[in-house]
Computed example of a mutant assay.
Amino acid sequence: MAKECLITGKRPVAGNKISHAHNKTRRRWEPNLQWKRVWIPSENRFVRMCVSTRGLRTISKLGVEAALLKAKKRG
């Protein structure tokens, strides 16, 4: 399973960790992903999805079906 939010599309990003002595080593910033069980009224069932905390806020604001439609349009 890729570490990607199904709603917002957030993925890990890479960059440099810089020490006090200014040594540079590669590192990754992971998105804050949570497994959530979401009720979809139109399908009358629960769906388990991996979403970021920002994605959870989007679901709360728009509703589940509107958020999924927006995500489908995004790709």
Score class of each variant (00 low, 15 high):
1 M>L: 10
2 A>S: 14
2 A>N: 13
2 A>P: 15
3 K>V: 13
3 K>W: 04
4 E>D: 05
4 E>H: 05
5 C>G: 12
5 C>S: 12
5 C>N: 04
6 L>N: 10
6 L>T: 13
8 T>Y: 01
8 T>Q: 00
9 G>M: 11
10 K>Q: 15
10 K>H: 10
11 R>M: 11
11 R>W: 03
11 R>Y: 01
12 P>E: 12
14 A>Y: 13
15 G>F: 06
16 N>E: 12
17 K>T: 13
17 K>N: 15
18 I>V: 15
18 I>L: 07
19 S>A: 07
19 S>Y: 04
19 S>E: 06
19 S>M: 04
20 H>Y: 12
20 H>I: 12
21 A>E: 14
22 H>I: 06
23 N>E: 11
23 N>V: 06
23 N>W: 02
23 N>I: 04
23 N>G: 02
24 K>I: 10
24 K>F: 03
25 T>N: 07
25 T>W: 04
25 T>F: 03
25 T>K: 13
25 T>A: 10
26 R>K: 15
26 R>C: 00
27 R>N: 13
28 R>D: 06
28 R>N: 11
28 R>M: 11
29 W>G: 02
30 E>N: 13
31 P>L: 03
31 P>F: 00
31 P>V: 06
31 P>N: 08
33 L>I: 10
33 L>M: 10
34 Q>T: 14
34 Q>E: 15
35 W>M: 13
35 W>G: 06
36 K>Y: 13
36 K>A: 09
36 K>W: 14
37 R>P: 01
37 R>M: 08
38 V>R: 06
40 I>W: 09
40 I>Y: 09
40 I>G: 00
41 P>A: 13
42 S>N: 05
42 S>K: 09
42 S>Q: 03
43 E>F: 08
43 E>N: 02
44 N>M: 14
44 N>T: 06
45 R>N: 09
46 F>C: 03
46 F>G: 04
47 V>R: 15
47 V>C: 05
47 V>Y: 11
48 R>M: 10
49 M>R: 12
49 M>D: 05
49 M>Q: 12
49 M>P: 01
50 C>D: 02
50 C>E: 10
51 V>E: 01
51 V>I: 15
51 V>L: 08
52 S>N: 05
52 S>I: 01
53 T>I: 09
53 T>D: 12
54 R>H: 06
54 R>G: 05
54 R>Q: 13
55 G>D: 00
55 G>W: 01
56 L>A: 05
56 L>C: 14
57 R>F: 01
58 T>C: 05
58 T>G: 04
59 I>G: 03
60 S>G: 15
60 S>H: 13
62 L>W: 10
62 L>K: 05
63 G>H: 09
65 E>Q: 07
65 E>M: 07
65 E>G: 02
66 A>K: 15
66 A>T: 06
67 A>K: 03
67 A>T: 02
68 L>H: 04
69 L>T: 04
69 L>M: 10
69 L>E: 15
70 K>F: 03
71 A>M: 07
72 K>M: 08
74 R>V: 00
74 R>Y: 03
75 G>V: 02
